[in-house]
Computed example of a mutant assay.
Amino acid sequence: MRKEVNYAGEVLRNELATSTELQSAGKTLKIWRMNHKKAIDKLTNQIYPILHESGILACRIKRLPSIIGKLRRYPNIKLSKMQDVVGIRVILPNIQAVYEFDEVLGLSNIVRHRDYIKTPKTTGYRGIHRIYQFNQDSDPIHIELQIRTQQQHLWATAVEMTGLVLGIGDDIKTQASSDDWLEFFALVSSAFARLEGTARVAQHENLSELELNEAIARLDERLGALTQLQAVEPVGTRVVLVDGDWQLLGLDRQRLTVDCLDWEPAVQRYEELERDLLSDQQLVLVKVRLDKLRLAYPNYFLDIQPFVKQLHQRS
């Protein structure tokens, strides 16, 4: 199926493709996304027995518009080799727990390992990334596993929430937002790294603690960052307990709706909602223990206050 998937990717990348071509390619993409289920089960079954008692295991299925957007942003990527169609995340209490888990998990089925804690990205992103490859009917399926601390998770989800609340969308993550906001979050990441005893972002290595805090304060004053973030209120939540361990999260500006479904009806409903998604709505299909949902995906609750509190306590 690899050839069909890659051809579908080329069609979806082409903004001049006909509606008939897009419809056929979209169908192939949906089948490809569904085919990740066995690989999800294989990897999560490896993780559960060794997961720290306070750890969180969460799985996210990438939305079709996000997949198409990534194909268009990165013209050389092949759809069959896209590594984050499925993203699995493990959130642990501290740095020691992260490295112990990473070591115990081993290297079986690993095709790439990146430590963005020892070498943070220039944006300030920190965490360990592992790319897995599982063979399914002779076709390789790739899954991305992110391992991060609770503090790193606060930072990463705050970036997403800030983009959403300020109308920037995912632009902060894709580095298309203002330079000031990018630098603000990079500086905050370096401040958080100091608290965890890990490497700062490269461009901040030579800053003293005082200089780092002064740089954050200057940007905060220029952007009104803390004032804007403190004004964000979590949305109300309606949980629809149907039957299943996958959660379909739908967020508008007033409310988060959570539908709990089995895999196949969840994906089917996901596809239906993707077609009619409005610009001010957010949608994602995830799997996590229901009592851990808010901790795993605070961005869908617009729950940014724990990040703001940590920012106040950084010094």
Rank of each mutant, 00 (worst) to 15 (best):
V5Y: 05
N6S: 05
A8E: 06
V11F: 07
R13Q: 07
E15H: 10
L16S: 15
T20E: 15
A25C: 11
A25S: 10
K27Q: 15
R33F: 01
R33W: 03
K38W: 04
I40S: 03
L43E: 01
L43M: 08
T44W: 02
Y48A: 05
I50F: 09
E53Y: 08
C59V: 15
C59K: 03
I61D: 07
K62I: 12
R63Q: 09
Y74M: 13
P75D: 01
N76F: 06
Q83I: 10
V86G: 00
V86S: 06
I91H: 11
P93V: 09
P93F: 13
N94T: 09
E100R: 08
V104I: 08
L105Q: 07
I110H: 05
R112P: 04
I117R: 00
T119Q: 13
K121M: 14
T122G: 04
G127T: 13
H129A: 06
F134N: 01
N135A: 08
H142G: 02
I143S: 05
R148A: 14
T149E: 08
W155K: 08
A156R: 08
T157Q: 03
V159H: 02
L166V: 03
G169C: 04
D179E: 12
D180F: 06
D180A: 06
E183C: 04
F184N: 00
F184P: 00
F185R: 06
A186Y: 05
S189Q: 01
S189F: 03
A193M: 02
G197Y: 03
T198C: 05
R200G: 05
Q203T: 08
E205K: 15
L207E: 14
S208E: 03
E209N: 12
E211C: 07
E211K: 08
A217Y: 02
L223D: 09
L226K: 04
L229D: 05
V235N: 02
T237P: 00
L241A: 13
G244S: 08
D245K: 12
D252P: 05
R255N: 12
D259G: 06
L261N: 14
D262C: 13
A266S: 12
E274Q: 14
L277E: 07
Q281C: 10
L283D: 02
L285N: 00
R289Y: 06
D291A: 12
A296S: 13
Y297R: 02
N299W: 04
N299H: 11
D303H: 05
D303T: 06
I304D: 01
F307R: 09
V308A: 01
Q313R: 07
